[in-house]
């Protein structure tokens, strides 16, 4: 059970990355390679607020969200909007992410920093397995976020509009929807959420500048398993990746965990390119 908790909480981290990818993908068909780096910045801001400045938790969360939202807004303006084709956006968002990694290293150094979380420091026992409060927090956050996003997309006008855009953006324009503005808003919201996510993942992964690359790739695997554009799919995909990684590390050795995730990625891409829950296949041309 302890192993499963570890897998699920690690998987929740990947699911959170996949949620970020999906929001941007649904709103603008772009792929934001810098998503994981946004979360990394969130974790660092949480560390600074919490440890360096000693601010109360709620202020820390708000601070991380606002800061990362601003960073995401800049990202959209400099790396996404001026670039027409999605393939080049991959390069420019990777570039932006690399800049963030570099800046994080300059500001916070390259040593991993331990980000504290609310509640008890000790692990608790639940259904015969042991887990930390931040692990439970991660799992709950990922599930709640997916549910909230699902409701938002069905209840709110802007949510309906974003789903409509993802189906036919020209038809959406003809209904008076400002597609560009909403796509920008989606980026800002991704940043907002990434700030929140950073606060939650920090205790699990530590705040470390090199967090981005591995997280970006595993988050993509979660996305590929779940299917592009499917929030539930990304959640399930994240959990699958987390569980596989923890089990492979436990039974085969830590050097096999990435390898098993890679094998799953290849298998899913070859056998079911639309993912388990996906309707929209990535464009192949």
């Amino acid at each position: 059970m302890t192993l499963i908790y570890a897998g699920l909480s690690l998987g929740a981290v990947y699911a959170l990355v996949a949620i970020g990818y999906n929001i941007v993908f649904v709103a603008s068909r772009s792929f934001n390679f810098a998503q994981a780096q946004l979360m990394m910045i969130g974790a660092f801001v949480a560390y600074t607020g919490h440890v360096t400045l000693g601010l109360p938790a709620i202020v820390v969360v708000a601070l991380a969200m606002v800061v990362v939202m601003l960073v995401a807004a800049i990202l959209e303006r400099v790396a996404v909007r001026p670039v027409a084709d999605h393939q080049t956006q991959l390069i420019t968002t990777l570039g932006f992410g690399t800049v963030l990694t570099g800046l994080a290293q300059l500001i916070w150094g390259s040593q991993p920093l331990d980000v504290p979380f609310f509640g008890a420091k000790e692990a608790m026992t639940l259904f015969g397995g042991r887990l930390y409060s931040f692990e439970l927090g991660l799992i709950v956050l990922s599930v709640v976020l997916v549910a909230v996003i699902h409701l938002y997309n069905r209840r709110m006008m802007s949510g309906l509009a974003i789903v409509a855009m993802s189906q036919d953006d020209e038809a959406a324009v003809l209904r008076g929807i400002n597609v560009r503005k909403l796509a920008f808003a989606a980026f800002a919201i991704t940043g907002l959420l990434a700030g929140l996510m950073g606060f939650f993942i920090g205790p699990k992964t530590f705040a470390v500048a090199t967090l981005g690359s591995a997280l970006a790739l595993k988050g993509f695997v979660a996305l590929a398993i779940g299917g592009f554009g499917s929030f539930y799919g990304g959640l399930v995909g994240g959990f699958v990746v987390g569980l596989v990684e923890e089990h492979a590390a436990r039974y085969l050795g830590s050097e096999f965990s990435n390898l098993s995730v890679f094998l799953i990625l290849i298998l899913v891409l070859m056998l079911r390119p639309t993912g388990l829950f996906g309707q929209t296949q990535e464009r192949t041309v």
């Binding site: 792929f31 999605h86 393939q87 991959l90 690359s213 591995a214 790739l217 993509f220 695997v221 590929a224 050097e255 096999f256 965990s257 990435n258 390898l259 890679f262 990625l265 290849i266 891409l269 070859m270 390119p273 990535e282 464009r283 192949t284 041309v285």
Partner: peptide
């Protein structure tokens, strides 16, 4: 994978390789 799939998947699988080198 790139023979069948689009740009992102190829980018990700090929970048993933770099992650696998130490393992």
């Amino acid at each position: 994978p790139g023979l069948r799939l689009g740009s992102w998947s190829l980018a990700m699988t090929s970048f993933f390789l770099v992650l696998l080198v130490p393992d």
